[in-house]
Design a protein around this nucleic acid. Structure first.
Length: 585
DNA sequence: GCCGTTTTCGGCCCGACTGTTTTCAGTCG
């Protein structure tokens, strides 16, 4: 059982408990536990098998540890079964509609017998929802809209799709009257691989004029909320944009608060409480103690900061934390010790080691790719077309590969400013053998291996297949190690822990594929690779010149995985990289 | 349900907006 599956069970229990009106802190405990499990790269199943104590993990106590153990050992969860008896799990889906939380979902279920979104839509059309208490005409209309949005876009948006929306939006907002500054926040700013909405922070005056300008955005389909300091518009493509307008003296506090993540904020605020401070989006305040009555809120005293983000971190004894790390995955502790990683930046990249040309399924010639790489300031690059097994991609057989080498030799002469390595993306066949004879593998400067077929193999077989594949002494890099496509295809079943250990022993690097549809490895796995001492290659897998610019997405993801330049192989200068290629596996 | 250098019990981050049951619950981030 994979961690992802365990986390899903804990989330399902949390949802069901929430629907049943359980203690909200108990619900949160399950969600926190789920987050811990999802953020742990080591398989919990392995930890259980080794007899390790799961309560060592943050947010996992005696109860959750026993539920997880039961789940791993039996494949079932009695707690989940029990929760499902009270509410059908399909009711959870209702909560995904904007404006519907646990209370309303439960109201629909108990009063109308509604268990699914289509049933809710029907009840709405039949006028049944209008009979419920608390549902006036505005609520009904909002629910109708919410269902429409739900049907149109149930998935989160890929970061690259969000980027295309954000650039023109920022330009438009920059022209708002009285605007001083506008910045992105939220998961977009943290560069999470997918985003649910876009958060904008604005400093300016008067707020009403800025909010009017915001609501008038030509791409907006409608306004969801428009208060004095907060608004939401929905774009024609279904993406929600949240805007917060704040005074300049609160800029840093607001930025910190709205960049999140929620878990990071909670942890920082807790540190504040320990120091007698109250932290909110307006600033950092000293708490003066209560003035009397039992339910009296603590008196908020002197404001001691908030104009700069650093004010927040300094107030609780931390150094500034890059947004990509703000997930409460250890960055709080590291920042308290001033021991954060020196995160990799795009400028650290000296070469792109995975790209295709017209020889297989690329759209540009080798020379076009070489010149484009040189323009990006790279010292080296590798042409890595597909091997023959990938027939749909016009994979090269040995004969065509030899012909390609002649062309590479010619391009080397014409584009001397960059070193072009002869590479290939060689398929790992279902039995783990490589799709190219040894004598050709030996002639290549750089060998990438990858799985493109039979992705449904059972985990043990897939793991053995991949480990056998990377065990060939000619192999340098394992490409897109899990095969996932964001929102489209799940990762194939593979024990990455074993693959990573094998890669480290053999001196093979794992790829971080920068294509925003892949971003494979994930942030959590990258972090694990770093812990295990496995080197990483951040590559674009470009199939045309413009794709070379996808490197930035790989860097974003690498930063989320805590990677430093020295964790990568393609941050090495050319001489050092040559030595790496010559290494003994 | 978790957690503890003020605590093994009693806390658990904090604020904005909406609609409607006119004083606040529900939802969201």
């Amino acid at each position: 059982m994979e961690n992802r599956e365990i986390a899903e069970v804990l989330i399902e229990i949390a949802d069901l408990l929430e629907l049943q009106g359980a203690n909200p802190f108990r619900v949160r405990a399950y969600r926190n536990g789920a987050r811990t499990v999802a953020d742990t790269s080591r398989p919990l199943a392995e930890m259980v098998e080794a007899g390790e104590d799961l309560t060592e993990l943050p947010g996992i106590g005696k109860d959750l540890a026993s539920y997880i153990t039961e789940l791993i050992e039996t494949g079932e969860s009695s707690v989940l079964e029990e929760a499902r008896e009270k509410v059908p799990s399909s009711v959870r889906e209702l909560m995904r509609i904007d404006g519907v939380g646990p209370k309303r979902a439960m109201l629909f279920y108990e009063e109308l017998g509604v268990e699914t979104v289509p049933e809710l839509e029907e009840a709405l059309e039949e006028g049944e929802v209008g009979q419920l208490p608390g549902f006036g005409p505005r609520s009904l209309e909002r629910l109708r809209q919410g269902i429409e949005d739900y049907k149109r876009h149930t998935e989160r948006f890929r970061l690259s799709d969000a980027d295309r929306v954000v650039a023109p939006l920022l330009e438009y907002m920059g022209a708002a009257p009285g605007l001083v500054a506008v910045e992105t926040a939220g998961s977009y700013r943290r560069r999470v691989e997918t985003v649910g909405d876009i958060d904008l922070i604005v400093i300016g005056d008067p707020p009403e004029a800025i909010m009017d300008h915001f609501e008038s955005y030509p791409e907006a389909a409608r306004t969801e909320i428009a208060g004095p300091s907060r608004g939401t518009i929905v774009l024609k493509n279904g993406l929600h944009i949240d805007l917060r307008i704040l005074p300049e003296e609160s800029y840093g506090a607001a930025l910190h608060y709205f960049i999140g993540s929620k878990a990071h904020n909670i942890a920082v605020r807790k540190l504040g409480i320990e120091r007698g401070l109250k932290i909110n989006e307006y600033g950092v305040f000293r708490v003066e103690g209560t003035t009397g009555g039992e339910d009296e809120a603590p008196d908020v005293g002197e404001k001691i900061g908030g104009a700069r983000e650093e004010d927040i971190f300094e107030a609780v004894g931390m150094v500034w934390v890059p947004p990509e790390l703000r997930e409460d995955r250890g960055e709080i502790e590291a920042a308290l010790e001033d021991d954060l990683p020196d995160l990799v930046v795009l400028d650290d990249i000296r070469g792109d080691l995975h790209m295709h040309s017209r020889w297989s399924d690329g759209e540009a010639s080798i020379e076009e790719m070489a010149r484009a790489c040189a323009e990006r300031g790279y010292e080296y690059m590798a042409i890595t077309d597909h091997s023959v097994a990938v027939r749909v991609a016009n994979g090269l057989d040995p004969k065509r590969l030899e012909e390609q080498w002649e062309e590479i030799d010619e391009v080397r002469k014409r584009v001397p400013e960059i070193e072009i390595f002869r590479g290939m993306e060689v398929d790992i066949l279902p039995d783990g053998s490589l799709d190219l004879p040894d004598e050709y593998l030996d002639e290549l400067d750089l060998v990438i291996v990858a799985v493109h077929s039979r992705m449904g193999l059972p985990e043990a077989e897939m793991t053995d297949r991949i480990i056998r594949g990377i065990s060939h002494p000619a192999v340098d890099i394992l490409a897109h190690p899990t095969g996932r496509l964001i929102n489209r295809r799940n990762p194939y079943a593979v024990d990455l822990e074993r693959v990573m250990e094998a890669a480290r022993e053999r001196g093979v690097a794992l790829e971080l594929n920068s294509n925003p549809a892949r971003l494979d490895l994930s942030d959590v796995h990258l972090r694990r690779a770093r812990e295990l001492g496995v080197r990483v290659a951040v590559n674009t897998d470009a199939h045309r010149v413009a794709n070379l610019d996808l490197m930035g997405y790989g860097i974003d993801q690498a930063r989320r995985g805590w990677l430093e330049a020295e964790d990568l192989i393609n941050s090495m200068g050319l001489p050092e990289f040559r030595r790496w290629l010559e290494r003994e596996g």
